[in-house]
């Protein structure tokens, strides 16, 4: 049984209040969720807090999930990224993205991560998953915009600032890229 199926089984047992299943889930996917939170927050302590918050909420609300919302590993990953994004955004008011100095010159506080880009990291990983193939098929800038949104939790405005492209252009890139990804993945499924 792969990690996604095992997670779904554990989540079903957790919904029935099974504490041992909750422990097993923590051990199974905690490291995956921490990786997602760390990629967004770039802060280990903050990322650990995010994972704790996600799991606490899961245990407390396991029976109160949305109708139609499947309890799956992918759902846990989305929730973790959202919590990580929220945690980073809470910190951001003290460090504005851009500002003007006394001379009126504009500065960008946000600088590019010096480590390998998300795409580079993704493509370095062995394997030929459909998602990777479809990402490679996108043009470079739209692909960067999607991955900045996904891996770093940036909003459209923040992606626009990071890539130094107009907001409307970034929105159009992301919209077209996501449509392209969907069609590509459905075509290769």
């Amino acid at each position: 049984m792969d990690i996604a199926n095992t997670t779904a089984d554990l989540l079903a047992r957790i919904a029935l209040g099974d504490q041992s299943a909750f422990r097993a889930l923590h051990d199974l996917v905690g490291s995956r969720l921490l990786a997602i939170a760390m990629r967004v927050t770039q802060d280990r302590a903050l990322a650990e807090d995010v994972v704790q918050e996600v799991l606490v909420t899961l245990w407390k609300q396991s029976e109160g999930r949305m109708a139609g919302q499947a309890l799956t590993l992918s759902w846990l990953c989305v929730v973790t990224r959202h919590r990580a994004i929220d945690a980073v955004r809470k910190l951001q008011p003290t460090t504005p993205l851009s500002w003007k100095d006394e001379a009126g010159e504009e500065h960008q506080h946000d600088v590019e991560d010096e480590s390998a880009s998300p795409l580079t990291q993704l493509l370095e990983i062995e394997g030929d998953h459909v998602m990777q193939r479809c990402l490679r098929a996108l043009d470079e800038w739209p692909r960067q915009a999607v991955l900045l949104g996904y891996f770093e939790g940036l909003t459209h405005i923040e992606i626009s600032a990071r890539l130094q492209r107009p907001l409307g252009t970034v929105k159009a890139w992301i919209r077209r890229s996501l449509n392209g990804l969907k069609l590509c993945m459905e075509g290769q499924a």
């Binding site: 995956r32 990786a35 992918s74 990953c77 993704l122 891996f151």
Partner: peptide, 12 residues
């Protein structure tokens, strides 16, 4: 669809 992206990150 996006799950492979999440699982592409090295576990921590």
């Amino acid at each position: 669809r996006a799950l492979p992206l999440a699982l592409s990150l090295p576990p921590q």
